[in-house]
Amino acid sequence: MKETNVGLGEQAISRSPEEILVAYGLGSCVGVVMVDPVSRVSGLLHAVLPRVTDGMAHSESNPSKYVEGGIEDLIAALVKQGANKNRLIVRIIGGANMLMTSGMTRSFDIGTRNIEAARTTLNRLKMPITVEEVGGHTGRTVRVYVADNRVTVRVIGEKEHEI
């Protein structure tokens, strides 16, 4: 099996049964997984910030850095690879508050806002969320097993579990 690292601000699409898409240590970032079980196309987005207006970099050409644009881009890429938008099973993971110390709330804001941005965007696109594993105070590593559409999450001190 081949693990493909989906880094911050990246997305990956695969229909190779040998491939596992993985985003290591999602903290306040949000991972969005979409799988079409019929055409067996899987996609994983690793978004950092809610939307482009949250940063100064309006001219950036990397939609995957942002939840809102990244989701739209992920769907387009999946459809291009043969997925049917209406069949896509959607999971969102991450959006944790990593810093619990008072006075360091910016990260909390971003994790929560990332979750809200994912929900809002998917709702606008009329795509129901099948599974959410979001919030809390711990990072998560997410793996997408393209061969059988399984999605797993690992947090520190635990074995990976299927969601």
Partner: peptide
């Protein structure tokens, strides 16, 4: 500031830096 201690996955810890700087440049 007072220190914050995180016991977690390396990627999630480093994300703090990315998120704090990522919106700027």
């Amino acid at each position: 500031s007072p220190p914050a201690v995180m016991v977690d996955i390396v990627g999630a810890i480093l994300e703090i830096v990315v998120v704090t700087t990522g919106g700027i440049g």
